[in-house]
Simulated assay, not measured.
Amino acid sequence: MILLTGATGTVGGLTARLLRGTEPVRLLTRDPGRAANLAGPQAEVVGGDFEDPAGLRRALAGVRSALLVTVDPLTHAHDENFLTAARAAGVRHVVKVTTLSVTEPEATDLVTEWHRENERLLRTSGLTWTLLRPRAFMSNTLGWARAIREDGEVRAPHGGTATAAVDPSDIAEVAVRALTDPAEHAGRTHALTGPESVTPVRQTEILSELLRRPLTFVELTEDQVLQGLLRRYPAPVARALVESAARGRAGTKGRVEPTVTDLLGRPARSYRAWAAEHLAAFRA
């Protein structure tokens, strides 16, 4: 049995779809109704919360491998509770999604430090582990969709800063490999990027070409970005995200890693390929 957390999120949901019908899977989510479309003959959806240790132990019963995705940078309790429950349940292998920024000494923002500590918790847990360290998700640009549909604009900071963003479906494919073949991936860290480094301005051009309509890139100031983030996140998290984005101007996020190709035997998917697949979200 494989257990997936974050089944209603990006990587967890894609991983669930890839595993569907291949072997027994249990999907852990706070809202089982949102994951109902992922249920099936070999896919069980269970309700659970990282703040409920007893519920985690029940969900992990009979599980051999688990995908761990946590999202609250203001606490390490979610990872601690999950790993404690996994040990008690006899789970053998945990695949954890963090971020490639943990490898950069100059990255000291709250979110990156949170990921570093979560990695340490897993490495010292006594469980076998695999760390997936993606660069920014290509799907983050779905946040532009409304402004593109309504105004023909992309509003973002640092338009000339290139990032080797990765298609989440590539992350999910690597996750499946690690979950189903723990012996091959135990104790390994996988740096996951796209096949090229692309700026927001170039992403805007690609979307314009695919949509066959003109789009305008509007450069936001850091303060404008911060004000927008404060409407969605607690202040410490919003400030950390702004700090992380600004750090990319030094070129640290543009490095392309060969890991996806090495593990999957094919090139990493390009931003153009991702955008073409999700074009409906951007259409007026």
Rank of each mutant, 00 (worst) to 15 (best):
107 A>L: 03
2 I>C: 01
162 A>E: 10
203 Q>N: 06
33 G>P: 03
207 L>Y: 02
65 S>E: 09
205 E>I: 03
271 Y>Q: 00
103 T>H: 13
95 V>T: 00
154 V>N: 03
52 D>G: 11
185 H>M: 06
146 R>C: 01
59 A>Y: 04
130 T>A: 02
203 Q>G: 08
34 R>C: 05
118 N>G: 15
37 N>V: 13
237 V>Y: 05
44 E>K: 11
86 A>D: 01
100 L>S: 14
153 E>F: 04
33 G>I: 06
175 A>S: 14
1 M>G: 10
263 L>G: 01
116 R>N: 05
54 A>E: 15
100 L>E: 12
108 T>C: 07
160 G>L: 07
125 S>N: 09
34 R>V: 05
155 R>I: 07
218 V>Y: 03
168 P>H: 13
282 F>C: 00
28 L>V: 09
155 R>G: 03
35 A>K: 01
259 T>C: 08
255 R>D: 08
147 A>P: 03
66 A>D: 05
160 G>D: 15
273 A>Y: 02
163 T>A: 14
174 V>T: 13
111 V>Y: 09
132 L>W: 00
32 P>K: 07
62 G>F: 00
79 D>H: 15
240 A>I: 07
139 S>Y: 07
75 T>K: 11
17 R>Y: 01
135 R>N: 14
238 A>I: 06
63 V>A: 03
133 R>V: 04
235 A>Q: 14
273 A>V: 09
145 A>N: 01
188 R>V: 11
246 A>W: 10
13 G>V: 08
117 E>S: 07
150 E>N: 00
116 R>L: 05
239 R>E: 15
118 N>F: 04
131 L>A: 12
46 V>A: 08
33 G>V: 05
172 A>K: 02
258 P>V: 13
217 F>E: 01
146 R>F: 11
5 T>Y: 08
150 E>L: 00
153 E>V: 13
227 Q>P: 00
52 D>C: 12
190 H>F: 13
81 N>P: 02
186 A>Y: 04
220 L>D: 00
202 R>I: 08
122 L>K: 05
212 R>S: 15
165 A>T: 05
237 V>S: 09
177 R>W: 05
80 E>H: 14
75 T>E: 09
169 S>Y: 10
223 D>L: 11
47 G>Y: 02
210 L>T: 12
154 V>H: 05
39 A>E: 02
216 T>A: 14
168 P>A: 14
194 G>E: 11
217 F>T: 04
172 A>N: 03
263 L>A: 03
69 V>I: 15
80 E>Y: 11
86 A>I: 06
194 G>N: 12
79 D>F: 07
143 G>E: 06
283 R>A: 15
180 T>I: 11
90 G>C: 11
8 T>Q: 10
239 R>D: 10
230 L>Q: 08
65 S>V: 10
126 G>N: 11
262 D>F: 09
162 A>P: 06
5 T>I: 12
175 A>M: 09
21 G>A: 10
77 A>F: 05
105 P>A: 07
120 R>Q: 10
240 A>K: 06
169 S>T: 12
61 A>M: 02
249 R>D: 06
138 M>N: 07
115 H>M: 12
31 D>K: 12
86 A>V: 10
58 R>W: 07
89 A>K: 04
150 E>K: 01
17 R>D: 03
66 A>K: 03
84 T>R: 13
